[in-house]
Design a protein around this nucleic acid. Structure first.
Lengths: 161, 161
DNA sequence: AGCCAATGCGTTATGAAATAACATAACCTG
DNA sequence: CAGGTTATGTTATTTCATAACGCATTGGCT
């Protein structure tokens, strides 16, 4: 990453097996409750995000899309990502041009990340945006979504540095 | 913008004449104090940002660069933007792929924006990141920079909607 | 002054990220 | 089962950003 360190990219586990299946099933049933459709491309992209050890770039998803090594076409993945974001199953990390599955409950259009500039992991945390909401309201804005991205070093990389 | 409204792009004044000259001069002297060099391309890009009525895309800057209509080469502008961001004279708005001059004092690597999805303006406000810093520290992170982008409707567009 | 390391610039080319546009297919729902 | 709506497949293109290289300028140092 931006800074000068070099680790075996680590942290952020990445689901597999039963845990993965259960996470996908949860998304599935959540969709059913709102009459949304978790179609094959959407499900596939969600799987890839959940399996990953860290943020995935769109073109990583495109390359990894086919179980047989066949890449997807870009619109396939971008449309799936749009859906997953809309439903709150994934977030885009703007400063990385990358995507992560949502680790928090709920569909609130708010997200906050701690991004390690060394190992590249992005940890989602529960955002408390009260001061910023207060500022926005004071300015007369009607806020719809908020994202916050904090960059620095995660505990592991901080030690090594 | 994203939402379905259509205004004569407004708000955010954009400096000209004496105000512009004075803002550039302020940057100039700030550079001198830290032995940084506000070279012609850097100064030119800063001017363009200050003159603009809203966030500028990189390729807008490239197109507008030459006083004679000659565009710049992309690296010229991207390098200038990198410098201006480093010195705190400009911010990149990640969710817009666009740039604005810094409206706040100081070089703190923190920025917060209220972005109107209707008219496209981006208002910088003084961020109070205390709850997020607390969360980051609790998680053991060493935060270096923070940016926040809130999207919604500005007072003017809220009324019309 | 003359040297030299560091920094910045000009230029060409390419890479990475995202979307436009249009045709086809699957799905509800009445 | 007809017809609107939603989703997908496909081709092409646009938009955004950086790599790599050589030259110019700067600012310290002897």
């Amino acid at each position: 990453m931006g800074v000068d360190c070099h680790h075996t990219e680590s942290a952020q586990p990445g689901l597999e097996g039963a845990a993965l299946a259960s996470a996908v099933a949860a998304a599935q049933s959540k969709c059913e409750r709102t009459r949304e459709r978790l179609t094959p491309p959407r499900r596939r992209v969600l799987e890839l995000l959940l399996e990953a050890d860290g943020p995935m770039k769109a073109y990583d998803l495109i390359a990894a899309y086919g179980q047989d090594g066949e890449p997807a076409k870009p619109p396939t993945v971008y449309r799936a990502l749009e859906f997953l974001e809309r439903l709150g199953f994934a977030h885009r990390i703007e400063s990385l041009n990358a995507y992560v599955p949502c680790r928090m409950e709920g569909t609130s259009h708010r997200a906050a990340f701690l991004i390690c500039e060394c190992c590249g992991t992005a940890e989602e945390f529960e955002p408390d945006f009260s001061p910023q909401f207060a500022a926005a309201e004071a300015a007369g804005y009607a806020v719809r979504t908020v994202t916050l991205e904090a960059r620095g070093l995660c505990p592991a990389c901080k030690v090594e540095a």
